Amino acid sequence: MMKDYDLAILVVAAGRGSRAGEGLPKQYRPLAGRPLLAHTLSALLDVASDARILTVIHPDDHDLYENCLASLDKERADRIMLPVHGGATRQDSVRAGLEALAGEKAPPHIVLIQDGARPFPNEGLIARARAAALDHGAAVPALLVIDTIKEVNESGRIVATPARAALRAVQTPQAFRFDLILAAHRKAAEANENGLTDDAAIAEWAGHAVHVFEGEIDNMKVTSAEDLAVAERRFLKDLPDVRIGQGYDVHAFGPGDHVWLGGLKIPHDHALVGHSDADVLAHAITDALLGAIGDGDIGSHFPPSDPKWKGAASEIFLAAAAEAVRARGGMIAHIDATIVCERPKIGPHRDAIRESIAKIVGISLDRVAIKATTSERLGFTGREEGMASMALATVRLPL
């Protein structure tokens, strides 16, 4: 029987994804409520429960990667190894990941090399990849080519029609005996052989026979903006149960020089009073999320009678509510909240508050709306005795 350390999955996510258009690197683009890479990692955690997973990222992407992990539930994210930095090319990035695994106390016996932009691996594919690596040492998933392929010259003239029966469209994860592919990458680097387009080509160049095993038609790679839209529709189709929860919270003013709103410290001539940090906005959103999944309220999960929550940062409560949604296999589709107060003025801080909430719950900024209003000097908020907040949370769950 294979031990846990016998299988590693190397997820390559250091590229810039320029073919997906302007904006974030494609692996961090929002897709059904969380980054594309988060979907890939989540799927791998599901279908390869005995594997260790190592991600190779761009040196500039640490914050983006941390946000990506924040969109996974914590227990699952803890199964992912600390990332390593990639290089100038995909070949450099894969080699960096392989060297990191080689430096482990117990290097793996089998390694699967997976594109970060392929978010639909399944158990059958992973099982076939592992078996093929054990049987052959080097193997790749592939599909029969169903369209006629033409080779053309620089002027666009057809110069050849390859026999379709001998062609295959190759996918990832590509599967290897670890020592074989590590040695092949090192040999290619020493020879300054940089033009090899995938890991199978590197193994071939190093003199190894590479076999194919059955791929998956649904194992698409997200390359363009159109691909992102197609992939998002697939994810949303699996989350048909749309629910809305509401939350409301109030806190009185007391002595102090700031208030906490959505996990952000806002200067003010008073503080809000409560058992925790009295973040009225975070509390309302927490209750809205819990309400949407029918899981009690903030007081039932974090009772004010418990001294451990005295002075606690309310972002803990908000993050826990978001994790509860993900634990149900769901996604947070949208958060819409309103703050009611005369002062402090919320407008100058609105975008920073939105960014804070988006980061805490692990969703994209465009899925968070924050509004503010006064009560026209009426009631306790009008008399500046305290603040109130109302929130709606829309979540999508599987049936």
Rank of each mutant, 00 (worst) to 15 (best):
residue 5 Y to V: 03
residue 10 L to F: 02
residue 19 R to K: 11
residue 20 A to Q: 04
residue 26 K to D: 11
residue 26 K to L: 06
residue 27 Q to T: 08
residue 38 A to N: 10
residue 39 H to C: 06
residue 53 I to G: 01
residue 55 T to H: 02
residue 56 V to W: 02
residue 59 P to I: 05
residue 60 D to A: 15
residue 70 A to P: 05
residue 70 A to E: 09
residue 73 D to A: 05
residue 76 R to K: 15
residue 86 G to P: 05
residue 86 G to Y: 00
residue 88 A to Y: 04
residue 89 T to N: 01
residue 99 E to I: 07
residue 110 I to C: 09
residue 113 I to T: 03
residue 115 D to E: 15
residue 129 A to N: 02
residue 139 A to K: 01
residue 141 P to W: 00
residue 161 T to W: 05
residue 171 Q to I: 00
residue 193 E to F: 03
residue 197 T to C: 02
residue 199 D to R: 00
residue 199 D to P: 02
residue 203 A to I: 01
residue 207 G to C: 07
residue 210 V to S: 14
residue 213 F to R: 06
residue 214 E to W: 00
residue 231 A to G: 13
residue 231 A to C: 08
residue 241 D to H: 13
residue 242 V to S: 15
residue 244 I to V: 15
residue 254 G to D: 14
residue 255 P to H: 11
residue 260 W to F: 12
residue 261 L to Y: 13
residue 261 L to A: 13
residue 265 K to G: 03
residue 283 H to L: 12
residue 284 A to H: 11
residue 288 A to T: 05
residue 289 L to K: 09
residue 296 G to R: 04
residue 298 I to F: 05
residue 299 G to E: 13
residue 302 F to P: 03
residue 306 D to H: 07
residue 314 S to R: 00
residue 317 F to I: 00
residue 325 V to M: 10
residue 329 G to D: 10
residue 329 G to I: 13
residue 336 D to A: 14
residue 345 K to V: 12
residue 355 E to M: 13
residue 361 V to E: 07
residue 363 I to T: 05
residue 369 A to D: 14
residue 373 T to G: 04
residue 377 R to W: 07
residue 380 F to C: 01
residue 391 A to G: 13
